[in-house]
Design a protein around this nucleic acid. Structure first.
Length: 488
RNA sequence: GCUCCUUUAGCUCAGUUGGCUAGAGCACCUGACUCUUAAUCAGGGUGUCCAGGGUUCGAAUCCCUGAAGGGGCACCA
């Protein structure tokens, strides 16, 4: 840091620090502090701790002075507790302690008691400044409201907005429960490369980077799918991975450029088996995390009780848009039907893609309660097995809750010849300018030639799942450090 | 990408029709106070009014350009 033009309030704090350091009391020299109990524990079991000695540490969040007696609120990782500071009990320290600021981190020793007003407090006998805060925390009553600042300085957001911390504590619990679910279902958790020569397994533009030693381009993965299926080929029957993927596209309330994806693959299972597992997972999480199968989300009450509704995509389109795509085999007929519905399908040239477009426009946002949408057109499902009864469709489902896609699963395509043809048609799309089409992955074809057992695969956008269970309406509120434009 | 709104003290916000030295609460500084809890009382304003141009005797305010954020639309799973 060079010479800064500091405002007076900041200058005051630096001067306080310099004074302490000049007196040989450098607060940044502290390396540890013995913490015997946390605020929440004392609050919940006051009788146990009453008049017992405690040693605690945390941040000063407010000060109420009254001459030779002061009340400070100490905030630790679990909550707040009031400190009772009396000059008689701290004869040498009291005057200096009064100069400590909101934001400073202190350690205290004393006894738990209740004030005349019935407030649980610690009668402080010894107080140590463990770290001096040189910045001013936001105002105690209104807090930090500026969304930009809250994301950029999440550490401040977490200090002054306790409900934000709750969301991320819950996120951690949900992650644990998800792992518990897959572990108890005999899946093994694996890790596959983030960097690869080909970014496949989904329709999305990848982020590119460069490896210096090999002098080759590398891409950040956009999905976990292809390496995981190679592991099924290799003989692991049940695998899952929960990890970050990266997609180089726009950002909004439900899209962050990096997000957490869960994918699982189970040999000798089809998409209907996966469907049952997904129902079980959501209902398990609801019960474990929220204590009820009814989850409140905004104005809605979502019931995650088993079973969820199931419907073919074609039938939902028929129900909401009054068009029966089952009866349409000609692209031009499909196009004029879409035009009638005011759906733009200029760059689409298959019945399946057009139906999907109509679905997105007319059906998607109406699917509030959980529903498995099944049988997606083969054109939009390049990695899924065709339905043997009607090869226009695939053995696939997407779970919709609250009008948003929450899970995507299918009976994995394991016919290497068919897979090769579908890759070829994706490559054609890419040449035609679709930057999100899948690349040709020759090694993956080789793996299928070696032999992939019948397999049911699943993908769940974990951040959107977190939004549902924590009742948050922006993906940025369930990601600790969402992607931000740099300042300047 | 389009569009509407916002940007003033560390934080939350006022600021009239363009008019004296730019305001309030919290925070902070000085002092008083031995059970307060959005403590109270007395005194103190600590500011690149988002940035850069322009109009004007005079701009936080009006005009232009740009930046950042939020909402809506589009794109996108």
């Amino acid at each position: 840091m060079t010479v800064e033009n500091l405002s007076e309030v900041l200058e005051v704090r630096r001067n306080k620090l310099k004074k302490l350091q000049a007196e040989g009391k450098n607060p940044f020299e502290q390396t540890s502090y013995d913490v015997s109990v946390h605020a929440k524990t004392v609050e919940e079991a006051f009788e146990t701790y009453e008049e017992q000695p405690v040693s605690m540490a945390g941040r000063i969040m407010s000060k109420r002075g009254q001459g030779k007696v002061s009340f400070y609120d100490l905030q630790d990782s679990t909550g707040r507790i009031q400190l009772f500071l009396k000059k008689d009990a701290l004869p040498d320290q009291y005057d200096e302690i009064k100069t400590y600021d909101i934001g400073d981190i202190v350690g205290i020793k004393g006894e738990v008691f209740k004030t005349h007003m019935g407030q649980i407090s610690v009668r402080v006998k010894e107080l140590t400044l463990l770290s001096k805060s040189l910045q001013i925390l936001p105002e105690k009553y209104h807090g930090l409201k500026d969304m930009d600042l809250r994301y950029r300085q999440r550490y401040v957001d977490l200090i002054v907005n306790p409900e934000v911390k709750e969301v991320f504590l819950k996120r951690s619990l949900i992650m644990k429960k998800i792992r518990e679910f897959f572990d108890t279902h005999d899946f093994i958790e694996v890790e596959t490369p983030v960097l690869s020569n080909l970014a496949g397994g989904a329709n999305a533009r990848p982020f590119g980077t460069h490896h210096n030693a090999l002098d080759i381009p590398l891409y950040l993965r956009i999905a976990l799918e292809l390496p995981l299926k190679r592991l099924i080929v290799g003989g692991f029957d049940k695998v899952y991975e929960v990890s970050r993927v990266f997609r180089n596209e726009g950002m909004d309330a439900t899209h962050n450029p990096e997000f957490t994806l869960l994918e699982s693959y189970e040999a000798y299972a089809n998409y209907e088996d996966v469907m049952e597992m997904v129902e079980e997972l959501y209902s398990f999480l609801a019960k474990e995390v929220n204590g009820s199968e009814i989850v409140a989300y905004g104005e809605e009450e979502i019931s995650l009780a088993i079973p969820f509704r199931k419907a073919r995509m074609v039938d939902l389109v028929k129900e909401y848009a009054k068009v029966d795509f089952d009866a349409i085999t000609d692209v031009e007929v499909a196009k004029s039907a879409a035009k009638e519905l005011h759906v733009d399908v200029k760059d689409k040239n298959s019945v399946g893609e057009i139906m999907t477009e109509v679905f997105d426009e007319y059906v998607e946002d109406k699917l509030i309660q959980p529903i498995f949408v099944t049988m997606h057109p083969v054109e939009t499902s390049p990695l899924a097995k065709k339905d043997p009864k009607d090869p226009r469709y695939t053995e696939r489902f997407e779970l919709y809750i609250n009008g948003a896609e929450c899970a995507n699963a299918f009976s994995e395509l394991n016919d290497p010849i068919d897979q090769k043809e579908r890759f070829m048609s994706q490559v054609q799309k890419k040449t035609d300018g679709d930057e999100e089409a899948h690349p040709f992955d020759a090694d993956f074809i080789n793996a299928l030639e070696v032999g992939l057992p019948p397999t049911g695969g699943l993908g769940i956008g974990i951040d959107r799942l977190m939004m549902l269970f924590t009742n948050q309406h922006s993906i940025r509120d369930v990601i600790l450090f969402p992607t931000m434009k740099p300042i300047e």
